[in-house]
């Protein structure tokens, strides 16, 4: 419990017609999130997979109090953020601890100059000017956008805008950053840039990263994968455990990495291959062994 940065117990949420939360569980509208219990350790790199509308974004928004659960408890850094006595000041403290980067880079940049946008969070926290300056410069450095500090955001590429958005979150010095499909609208280059920053933050600054995505190859790089389907937490395990369940993933409309899929197919035809290889190298090794043996049937 001590080293859990996020802990949920029996978390449930229901949207009403207007898209806001309702006070009681309704029989008509299916819950967006249904009885989810999960603990996330400090410094973990987590991927959340699920198809569109599975409830994974709702899950994220419950973690920084954008939405309030109708049932269950959320603990951030040991504090119960769902208790009644939670004050507004405490709420903003939670939001500065749990940062969030969204899908559409355009819709999260506020200012007309890159560095002023990065400063937006620290400004809201009421930090002294010198500290804001320092954080803005550091954050832009981390995402490699320092030379664009005085540019207008609308002139940047999608990947660059998203990096500015990340800098804006880093500048608040969060302990957790949630990436809510932050790579979905980017081209492969932009996606790679964002993914690299994500992993660097996790590795070097020990920031807990939660990457909500539907790219299997991104999830395969995480320490741990959560699979949410129809509001329920279906699977929770290492990428290796999750992606070897090829059949199960297909049944809920998801996929495994191509190499794993191939090994699964071969194995189900009776060939002697491991089915828990997920990286390109592992799959290559497995297939090389198979071909080298001349394909002895299991």
């Amino acid at each position: 419990m001590e080293n859990c940065i996020i802990k949920n117990e029996n978390l449930s949420f229901v949207y009403d017609d207007e898209g806001t939360s309702v006070s009681a569980v309704s029989a008509v509208i299916p819950p967006a999130l249904d009885d989810v219990t999960v603990s996330i350790k400090k410094g973990e790199y987590i991927a959340v997979l699920g198809h569109n509308g599975s409830g994974k974004s709702t899950f994220a928004k419950l973690l920084n109090m954008i939405l309030k659960p109708i049932n269950g408890r959320v603990y951030i850094d040991g504090k119960d953020i769902t208790c009644e006595e939670f004050t507004e000041d405490e709420m903003f403290e939670v939001r500065s601890k749990v940062g969030m980067v969204f899908q559409n880079p355009d819709n999260q940049l506020v200012a007309t100059v890159v560095e002023e946008d990065v400063a937006f969070g620290p400004e809201n926290l009421g930090l002294p000017r010198a500290e804001i300056r320092k954080r803005v410069d550091e954050a832009l450095d981390v995402v490699g956008m320092a030379e664009y500090a005085n540019h207008a955001p609308h002139k940047l590429s999608g990947g660059q805008k998203q990096r500015v958005a990340i800098a804006g979150i880093i500048a608040m010095k969060p302990k957790v950053i949630i990436f809510d499909e932050s790579t979905a609208m980017l081209d492969p280059l932009g996606r790679r840039e964002v993914l690299e920053i994500m992993e660097k933050l996790n590795r070097e600054d020990n920031i807990t990263v939660i990457n909500i995505t539907h790219y299997m190859e991104e999830a395969a790089r995480a320490d741990r994968v959560l699979i949410i389907n129809d509001g329920k937490l279906l699977l929770d395990g290492s990428p290796r455990e999750i992606f070897s369940k090829v059949d199960f993933l297909h049944s809920i409309g998801l996929e495994s990495p191509q190499g794993t899929e191939l090994l699964f197919e071969l194995s189900s035809l009776g060939y002697d291959v491991p089915t828990d290889a997920i990286s390109e190298d592992e799959c290559y090794d497995a297939l090389k062994t198979l071909l080298g043996k001349g394909g002895k049937l299991a």
Binding site: E265, G270, L290, G294
Partner: peptide, 18 residues
């Protein structure tokens, strides 16, 4: 494609699988 490589491997190993 996954299918294509699978077929190629099966062909290389000289069988139809089972």
């Amino acid at each position: 494609t996954v299918e294509g490589v699978k077929d190629a491997i099966i062909k290389y190993l000289g069988g139809s699988g089972r």
